[in-house]
């Protein structure tokens, strides 16, 4: 009764024949894009040939001292918090002296205590900070005493 040719590709409802629907190519394309995005880190790192992290270099003074205000492991993970609290205590409470758990006494000062020892930012701070993509704004105001103002401003 209708255009039989159109209907000839199937006969009964139970036995049906699937012809590929037109959207399959778009679905595959979408999947490829999705998987591509999801696995982005894998091929990005392959293309960039990312180098392993370069170890932090301690200055001679730091090496000689052999200690910091807290054990190294704690400094690695929590130094930002210490700096943060130091500055609050120094500025607002006027306390400037810090006694470490080991009994050593330090002046709480980024420029004058921390940077005095760790004076090479590029090989100390920046190594990890760049690797972990952590930007700081400490040096917007504070200065590295071992550098000129111009160097500090860069």
């Amino acid at each position: 009764m209708n255009d039989k040719a159109e209907l000839s590709n199937a006969s009964a409802s139970a036995s049906m024949k699937l012809i590929p629907s037109g959207d399959k190519k778009w679905i595959i394309l979408g999947l490829i894009i999705f998987v591509g995005l999801f696995t982005f880190p894998i091929w990005y790192n392959m293309l960039k040939c990312s180098a392993p992290i370069q170890p932090v270099v301690l200055s001679a003074k730091a090496k000689a001292a052999g200690y910091c205000v807290l054990p190294k492991s704690e400094m690695v993970s929590a130094h930002m918090q210490i700096l943060d609290e130091w500055r609050d205590i120094v500025v607002r409470e006027g306390e400037r002296t810090y006694t470490s758990p080991s009994g050593k006494i330090f002046t709480m000062s980024l420029s004058n205590t921390c940077l005095d020892c760790h004076n090479n930012q590029a090989e100390f701070c920046d190594r990890c900070h760049q690797y972990a993509s952590v930007k700081t704004y400490c040096m917007d105001c504070h200065v590295n005493p071992s550098k000129s103002l111009k160097e500090n401003m860069q």
Binding site: S111, N112, Y137, D140, C141, H142, V143, N144, P145, S146, K147, S148, L149
Partner: peptide
């Protein structure tokens, strides 16, 4: 410039 004292932002 005095390195012992911070500048301001």
């Amino acid at each position: 410039f005095n390195p012992q004292f911070p500048t301001r932002t």
